[in-house]
Amino acid sequence: MAERMLLMLSVNGTEITREVPVRLTLADFLRHELALTGTHLGCEHGVCGACTVLVDGRTARSCLMLAVQADGAAVQTVEGMAVDGKLTPLQQAFVEHHGLQCGFCTPGVLATLTELLETIPDPSEADVREWLSGNICRCTGYQGIVDAALAAAKAIREGAAGE
């Protein structure tokens, strides 16, 4: 149970090398080894989606993934989204549209929606709800999240068109 392995990966663009217990989850590695506490654990059995992060650009449940499985990967967490403290258009849309209340599920929701907006730049409300169905929120009733996602998609498209 104390077996350890060497792990090399990139987290939010920083190269990291650590020896970790093989049974350590990626979520606990991020939270407790790297102090990136923005990734939250809501169920630890892969349903609620609070712990969702991006691994090589794709969403992954960091509670169901061992840290050593991320060897060689590029991991992005909520801490890696805003640049120099400035909120991304998606994060800003959450402020404008009341896309969060307690904020506990929010980091996972942001990860899911980041992947959505890269995959479908002009999603319908049904698309957003379908993609969100892997993230449970008990506070908002999802309304503000859906509104924020649609507004962010529009802002990103318009921003890209303006460049």
């Binding site: 990136l36 506490t37 909520v78 801490e79 989204m81 403290g85 994060q91 307690c102 506990f104 942001l110």
Partner: peptide, 8 residues
């Protein structure tokens, strides 16, 4: 909260 800087 949006930047992962909440303190739970």
């Amino acid at each position: 909260l949006l930047k992962g800087e909440g303190r739970f």
